[in-house]
């Protein structure tokens, strides 16, 4: 079981990330249709996000949200909010957080913004595709190339 884990499961996420990236890259280079190229771009993007999120995973860890015991509601600042007695009792009672038991939040933050930015850039790309369709009446790369007037040779 240990051998199986180390050779297969431990790297499987990375293999799939490489495969998805290859699929997306090939589609972006070789596909003829502009929308298909953008589908390839989406797949490429999720492959990168998959890589990042896979790096942040910890074995037997929980999600990066602290429980009620660790952060009592209004624990810190309400005790200090009443001026006069600065009661740090709530601080001392809080359990220690072991960083090993909580999933790494940094890749999540980076990728969360990347997804939303990704959809807005996809919107820009689709707008350009529509503009191309308005001008050339087609989304196929070869048909567009045939319609572009060549400079001196044409």
């Amino acid at each position: 079981m240990d051998f199986f884990y180390q050779t297969f499961i431990a790297k499987f996420n990375y293999w799939i990330y490489v495969i998805l990236m290859m699929i997306g890259l090939f589609a972006m280079i070789a596909k003829n249709n502009l929308i298909k190229k953008l589908v390839g771009m989406c797949i490429f993007q999720t492959a990168i996000i998959l890589f990042y999120v896979s790096i942040g995973v910890k074995q037997d860890a929980r999600i990066p949200i602290l429980t009620k015991d660790e952060v009592p509601h209004g624990g810190h600042y309400t005790t200090e909010h009443h001026d006069g007695h600065k009661d740090h009792k709530a601080d001392q009672e809080r359990p220690y957080i072991d960083a090993k038991t909580i999933t790494n939040p940094i890749p999540h933050v980076l990728m969360l913004t990347a997804i939303v930015v990704g959809v807005s850039t996809l919107g820009v790309a689709l707008a350009i595709a529509q503009k191309v369709h308005l001008h050339y009446g087609s989304l196929e790369e070869d048909e567009i190339l045939a319609k572009i007037p060549l400079g001196n040779d044409g």
Binding site: K58, P64, I65, L66, N104, V109
Partner: peptide, 29 residues
């Protein structure tokens, strides 16, 4: 792997352990 460089680095450990005292927000993200 919980001991990989990305997971056991100072930055991530600091965010996980100290953001509670800095900000009082349970959702670390």
């Amino acid at each position: 792997d919980p001991l990989s460089p990305a997971n056991a680095g100072d930055l991530s450990t600091h965010y996980i352990q100290d953001s509670r005292d800095d900000t009082e927000v349970p959702n670390l993200v």
